[in-house]
Nucleic acid binder design. Sequence first.
DNA 1: TCACACCTCCTACTTTCGTAGGAAAAATGG
DNA 2: CCATTTTTCCTACGAAAGTAGGAGGTGTGA
Lengths: 137, 137
Amino acid sequence: MRQTVFIFSGIAISILVVFELSKYSMFGSQGSRELFVFLFAIAFILIGIVLQRFLTKPPASETLEVNREEAIKKSGLSKQEFTVLTLMAEGLSNNEIANRLFIQESTVKSHVSNILMKLDAKRRTQAVKIGRDLQII
Amino acid sequence: MRQTVFIFSGIAISILVVFELSKYSMFGSQGSRELFVFLFAIAFILIGIVLQRFLTKPPASETLEVNREEAIKKSGLSKQEFTVLTLMAEGLSNNEIANRLFIQESTVKSHVSNILMKLDAKRRTQAVKIGRDLQII
DNA sequence: TCACACCTCCTACTTTCGTAGGAAAAATGG
DNA sequence: CCATTTTTCCTACGAAAGTAGGAGGTGTGA
């Protein structure tokens, strides 16, 4: 990818240089004006680069959100299970999750077991990892 | 890849066209010349924006690497401890980590305990979370 | 060379996690 | 309304994880 970019950049620049040189040989006095145009163009390219750098901040948040919703559905996790998964990812224990959600620890254990089954994980750490890989978390 | 080729081909052609036009318009009336300069500037700003978009794909990998190294040092984790942490983040059990590193599970437990102390975590899941927050993982 | 961090390993113990196998009340979708 | 899912909860057990405290070997910087 990057290689391609450089190659084509090089080609574009080469073409411009050849054009400039050809103009010099053809028009003579016209040359300084052409050179000015050339520098002018480069200046505005730089301006464009700077603009792009400042205007490009939020990169595709909607698409990610949509994918996340879909991924959650595909994973087969229910609402509460997903909630438990996110709290697991926060590093909470079953007990802490129970307190956070106002349910019993035994309930949390049930959810965790279901999560492990649905995500095909053996441990909660692995479930979190899989959740991350699925962009769910 | 193909997209990139087309885009850069387009850029090259655009540049040539604009240059060609510039030759003719240079000799036109004063008004159209100013209009041309305006469009010319905008065109090259757009070119700059596109260039920036394609050249800014690998965004600061070195800086991130440096920060990561620093963060690891700041966390106080040793080499092996860091290795164990990354394997924990992969969702591996102590036993699996031991097999992966060709050391005993008891050794892994020692490392894990040290990691938890150094990262001020109570569980391995929390250690992983903290490691992520510190851009270590 | 000596202190010190690091890596390795151990036992014994406590705690947390996860499984198995229920059960019953809500919620939800036809 | 009925079937299904979801959520809630339980006990009891086994499996990991984590703690405490020790110990020996290696390497490194002062």
